[in-house]
Amino acid sequence: MITTPFGFSSTAAEVAAGIDLSGRRALVTGASSGLGAETARVLASRGAEVTLAVRDTAAGERVAADRMKTVEQGAATSVLLAVSPLLDGVGGRYFNDCNEAEVVDRRTGTLHGVARYAVDPENARRLWDVSEALLADAAGAS
């Protein structure tokens, strides 16, 4: 009987940790969501060239565009916003893939862009006011 150091609570990333899949190809079925998408993500993060087999091509494109990054690539935008002198004093904007997100009126299959209401100054002011009121109420209750 084959036993492994993995069990019920193991993750796909843990199972693949330390394995170099460079130069290997993988075909992942059902890769537009759930287990298939996570399998594809982990295999790609370990260096495999992954082909996504999906019925819903738009969903497959979203997985390929948004989930096929390494952890290092996924963190790049957050780190850029935290450390780049290009963005000193800049706030209230949305970024993806290390660039400011385009304001869109309608989402497309790519999930890129930021909704117009999310960057509306009046909405931001209202949210700030509500947040302050909630904090004041919480401080008064304690």
Rank of each mutant, 00 (worst) to 15 (best):
I2S: 14
F6S: 06
G7Q: 07
F8N: 03
T11M: 03
E14I: 01
E14Q: 04
I19W: 11
I19F: 09
D20A: 11
S22Y: 05
S22I: 03
G23K: 07
V28K: 05
V28D: 09
G30P: 07
G30T: 10
A31Y: 02
S33L: 04
G34T: 15
G34Q: 10
L35F: 12
E38P: 00
V42Q: 08
A44F: 00
R46F: 02
G47I: 00
E49S: 15
A53L: 06
V54R: 06
V54L: 08
R55L: 14
D56A: 15
E61D: 03
R62M: 03
A65K: 00
D66C: 01
D66E: 14
R67T: 12
R67D: 09
E72M: 01
L80H: 05
L81S: 08
A82V: 02
A82Y: 01
L86D: 14
G91V: 12
N96Q: 14
C98A: 02
E100Y: 12
E102N: 00
G109W: 13
G109V: 06
G113V: 01
G113Q: 02
A115K: 03
A115W: 03
P121H: 07
E122G: 07
N123Y: 12
R125P: 11
R125C: 09
R125L: 10
L127K: 15
D129G: 14
V130H: 14
A141C: 10
A141D: 14
